[in-house]
Design a protein around this nucleic acid. Structure first.
Lengths: 170, 170
DNA sequence: CAAATATCTTTCAAGCCTAAAATATTTTGC
DNA sequence: GCAAAATATTTTAGGCTTGAAAGATATTTG
């Protein structure tokens, strides 16, 4: 316990706005988080390329569509993938060219279009997804189930914190 | 405790290679981790652009150089930033053009070059770093110090696990 | 209903990023 | 010392990514 010292001195609270606050702990955590995702992402990207000659963004797009058998609009896809609209336009274009994706007009809204995996797309994704899951598991090998659960919970809290901060953005 | 049932059946261990193993927990953790870094990265990228008209990669490069007053070679920078050599070549080029970076020959190795922040680079970085730290802290607002410490520890374990798996890569 | 506003998508310019090949130089091992 | 291997960097081709502007269609509102 720290005891505020004598007369005329500012307590920690009052000082907070005058001196650069100490954000070291948060900064280091952010750096470590970024390191982890960069490492994993790089590993997965490399393996997808070597094994299936596919890029990570294309794999991610297919993964989203796999979960929506009836298809999904470009906008919905862009929100779920957390990337820009224009980005999805280009990715989808290339996947349609490859015959993995099918594009059809939205039944009631002529601005929009639905995207769906073709049969070839489903098959390709199934093959990739199986190995992908194994790679991820391998990267997490040294973590036991309790640690994974604890990380899961804390990252959930972090996600919540970030989204909340986003709301009250200055 | 599970009891292996009668004759002729395979125990869990033997089955492992035949059935798709359950990697759900790891997959979901990876997705959540990726969501967190994508959210934070996007937030920081946007603020850097709006407030300082600078990109995140340029900020990252400057942050690395700030820690090495005597400068650093391109290769060292590329390793620390975990990006390709060619990437650093281009980033550095643009920062030199802006007058934030200085490039000088390596004293003893004619293949290599040192990069250092110019005075203008130091000044620009100092201004950005101060606000940057505040933004990060704000995004972590809802996490208390214990949670941050716990996350830090678990991510340390994860980093270790990923690096170890990388070593024993098939 | 018409004007204003919102939404869905594409296009564009600029920059980021990688893997692989090429160039230049240094180090290593005979 | 010299050939071979290793290291530092650049170049190249291709793809990813963004933010902003523009086009097309829907929805809302006066």
């Amino acid at each position: 316990m720290e005891i505020p010292s004598a007369l005329g001195e500012l307590d920690a609270e009052s000082r907070a706005d005058e001196r650069p606050a100490d954000h070291q702990q948060e900064l280091r955590l952010w750096l470590r988080l970024l390191t982890c995702s960069t490492l994993i992402e790089g590993e997965i990207r490399g393996r997808l390329r070597a094994r299936f000659d596919v890029t990570l963004p294309r794999f991610d797009l297919m993964a989203q569509l796999e979960k929506a058998p009836e298809g999904m609009t470009l906008g919905e896809l862009s929100r779920r993938m957390m990337v820009s609209n224009g980005n999805v336009t280009g990715l989808a274009e290339r996947l349609v060219e490859q015959g993995l994706l099918e594009r059809r007009p939205h039944p009631t809204d002529r601005r929009a279009a639905f995207l769906r995996l073709t049969d070839a797309g489903h098959a390709a994704f199934a093959a990739m997804a199986a190995e992908h899951a194994g790679w991820i598991a391998q990267l997490f090998t040294d973590m036991d189930s309790d640690e994974i659960a604890a990380l899961m919970r804390l990252l959930g809290r972090l996600k919540q914190s970030v989204r909340a901060a986003d709301g009250r953005t200055s």
